Simulated scan of single mutants.
Amino acid sequence: MNPATTFLSCDWGTSSFRLRLVEREGLKILAEESSKEGNAATAELWKQAGQPPEQRVGFYLAIVQGHLKKLEEAVKTSLDGVPVVISGMASSTIGMEELPYKPLPFATDGSDLSAKIMEPTADFKHATLLISGVKSDDDVMRGEETQLVGCQFENTAEQQLFLHPGTHAKHVLVQHGQAVALKTYMTGEFFSLLSKQAILAASVAEGGQLEEGANRQWFEKGVQDSQQDNLLHNAFLVRTNDLLMKASKPENFFYLSGLLIGSECHDLLGSLPASITLAGEPVLLAHYGAALRVLGIADKCPVTTKTAVEVTLHGQSAVLQHSRINQQKA
């Protein structure tokens, strides 16, 4: 496999691991592997192993190597020398090596993100680019900075918004080719806690789709209600909807989702950007897109959606292009 025309994309989150062999031109995925070997689980295994600190990077790369072998079996050729680009939580306290956050602003073309190059070794025959996260004065992100680069924002004076839904949703303002401001919303984590561990857990049921039955109606009602009353009061309505048989448990699931996403997006009404790029998993893109329409935001500024895979590959490719690894190959 030609290292000058391919790279290995490693998207290593807290709870998941994804490795893809990618053609640089066109970013076609040639083969991929995934597992639940996220950084949290790997960090726990590292603690149990009791190895000295200097072996930590090698311990983590051994996991990458195991998936690399499966990719080699899939494509029936050696991948020795193909560079690896790693983004996500691998540069955090639970990752292979903690790297300092880059302070805002940063260039949206990926030219100045903080990253560390790890040279090939006898055990791991790949130059590795480990991308670090970004911080503001009071907020941080790891992984989303690479995805923001992958959105390929225009260099314009107008404020554009990068919105990444998830456990900790990120809102990043982009202006003049720079990411300049960052806000995190714990929307996904609050939803998980309320729907699984709070008293509301008995009043919701997961498993349906937004377009099934009255789910969309209840989701949109949640978004609308989120604009009228305090979230702490609205959340209790999830319980009374069930007790008073106003909504089924699956419908209540979408009502709670609408309440939380609507509460998050309420901030946008006070200061609308010129455009919004939604980037993430398809299910969440559908929910956020629906919420932005209900709030009238989508009528006032264009909303573009991009998948998490798409922006991750574009972002990693851009950072690799600007790195010394790419210059060495050239």
Score class of each variant (00 low, 15 high):
Gly66Glu: 07
Leu45Ala: 15
Phe190Trp: 08
Thr146Trp: 08
Ser192Trp: 06
Gly188Thr: 15
Ala205Leu: 10
Phe124Leu: 13
Asn230Phe: 03
Glu97Arg: 15
Leu231Arg: 06
Phe253Thr: 11
Gln227Asp: 07
His171Ala: 14
Val303Gln: 08
Ala330Pro: 01
His233Met: 10
Glu44Asp: 12
Asp123Cys: 05
Lys28Cys: 04
Ile117Gly: 00
Phe162Lys: 06
Gly66Gln: 12
Leu285Gln: 13
Thr277Leu: 11
His164Asp: 09
Lys36Arg: 14
Leu256Lys: 09
Arg18Glu: 12
His67Gly: 05
Gln178Phe: 02
Phe7Lys: 13
Thr156Gln: 11
Lys249Ile: 00
Val309Ser: 12
Val75Cys: 13
Thr6Tyr: 12
Gly95Leu: 06
Pro53Ala: 11
Ala90Val: 00
Val85His: 09
Lys221Thr: 10
His314Arg: 15
Ser192Cys: 08
Pro105Ala: 07
Leu292Val: 04
Gly222Asp: 11
Ala41Trp: 11
Leu194Lys: 02
Glu310Ile: 04
Leu200Phe: 01
Pro282His: 02
Ala169Phe: 05
Lys300Tyr: 00
Ile29Lys: 05
Phe219Thr: 04
Leu256Glu: 06
Gly26Ala: 11
Lys135Pro: 03
Gln197Phe: 09
Asn234Glu: 11
Val238Arg: 05
Lys329Ser: 03
Glu23Thr: 06
Thr304Met: 13
Glu145His: 06
Phe59Gly: 08
Asn155Glu: 15
Phe162Thr: 01
Ile261Tyr: 02
Val134Phe: 07
Leu269Val: 07
Val22Tyr: 00
Ser35Lys: 09
Leu71Lys: 13
Ala247Val: 01
Ser226Glu: 02
Asp123Trp: 00
Leu71Ile: 15
Lys196Leu: 13
Phe106Thr: 07
Val303Gly: 04
Glu206Ser: 14
Tyr288Leu: 08
Pro105Ile: 10
Ser9Thr: 06
Ala201Trp: 00
Ile94Lys: 13
Leu129Gly: 07
Glu212Leu: 04
His266Tyr: 08
Leu130Tyr: 03
Pro83Ser: 07
Pro83Tyr: 10
Lys249Tyr: 02
Pro165Trp: 01
Gly296Leu: 07
Val303Cys: 03
Gly270Cys: 07
Leu259Tyr: 05
Leu148Val: 01
Gly270Val: 00
Phe254Gly: 03
Ser111Thr: 14
Gly50Ala: 07
Gly95His: 10
Lys183Leu: 09
Gln48Pro: 00
Ala274Arg: 11
Pro165Met: 05
Asn326Trp: 06
Gly188Lys: 09
Leu260Thr: 06
Gln227Met: 13
Arg56Tyr: 08
Leu161His: 06
Met186Ser: 06
Cys10Gly: 04
Tyr101Leu: 10
Asp109Ser: 11
Gly110Asp: 03
Lys306Asp: 05
Pro302Ile: 05
Gln160Met: 12
Gln227Ile: 00
